[in-house]
């Protein structure tokens, strides 16, 4: 039985691809390929009129200020469609600049207000300093619910931490309707206060973590894929486990580096 290809909609790949965001697409597609599952990556660019009803997974990365400003208006027109599908369970991952635009609005430090698409009940305020560094966060209870038995795909499903790198000046504040994705263990996180990181609404994930996020957090990659496949009625769940030794070692190394890097850099400078 051949499955129709899983359709990954990559939002604004030309403008929102700053911090190795492509790594997330590479991780998703390779993990499908290794399982013998077909996929298709559809780039959505300014001026396109995509049919989000056909999307199985959404991804949006971060961008330069100019790029983010430019795409905000285009994204806004797609907002109602995206919100409708996310409410219907469409999995999505929005990183950094994309995450900011998935909230209600981004009020920049320069005084502009970029419209958001209100997938997350959250807003972002521009800050005066950049929050830069390795980050470790622990998945919140809400997020830990993912690993329902039907999703367990090998050892990496046991991971409860997220590792990556943050680089943002915007501070994101979550409101009542959206719980945090994770609790910061090392780093600054959403509001720069070292408390919460990222947002979770239904199957949509927002986060400041790049690095890229998905290759060394394979549990998140497999969660997104599992949800996408389940929504499509794929019968082969749980996903066949992959040999994730390399990914798990990178996860552990990033965790270790985050804990030591701060002091290391103090000595270096």
């Amino acid at each position: 039985m051949t499955q129709p290809p899983l359709r990954i909609y990559h939002l604004f790949p030309r403008h929102m691809n700053l911090y190795g965001d492509l790594g997330n697409i590479i991780a998703l597609t390779m993990r499908l390929q290794w399982r013998g599952l077909a996929f298709e990556v559809i780039g959505v660019n300014p001026g396109d009129r995509p049919d989000f009803g056909r999307a199985d997974l959404l991804f949006m990365g971060g961008g330069q200020d100019r790029g983010q400003k430019l795409v905000a208006a285009y994204l806004e027109t797609m907002g109602p469609d995206i919100r409708r599908e996310v409410n219907d369970g469409l999995p999505a991952l929005a990183v950094c600049g994309g995450y900011q635009l998935f909230g209600h609005y981004f009020h920049t430090y320069e005084g502009d207000t970029l419209p958001g698409i209100s997938v997350f009940d959250a807003h972002t305020e521009g800050g005066s300093r950049r929050l830069v560094g390795n980050m470790v966060a622990e998945l919140s209870n809400a997020a830990a619910l993912w690993a329902s038995t039907e999703e367990r795909a090998g050892e990496s499903a046991e991971l409860r931490t997220l590792v990556g790198f943050e680089n943002h000046s915007g501070l994101t504040f979550l409101h009542e309707g959206t719980p945090a994705l994770a609790k910061v263990l090392v780093g600054s996180g959403n509001a720069g206060d070292g408390c919460s990181e990222g947002a979770l609404y239904r199957n949509a994930i927002g986060t400041y973590l790049h690095g890229s996020l998905l290759p060394k957090n394979p549990h998140v990659a497999d969660h997104l894929l599992s949800v996408a496949l389940r929504r499509r009625g794929y019968a082969g769940l749980p996903l066949a486990p992959l040999d994730d030794q390399v990914e798990l070692r990178a996860h552990a190394a990033a965790l270790e580096r985050a804990r030591t890097a701060h002091t290391a850099h103090l000595f270096e400078s």
Binding site: L22, F165, N167, H210, A264
Partner: peptide, 15 residues
Amino acid sequence: NDNLADGTDISWIWD
């Protein structure tokens, strides 16, 4: 390496 002079953010290798 990811020391200051290398750039502490290594995400660029994904590009």
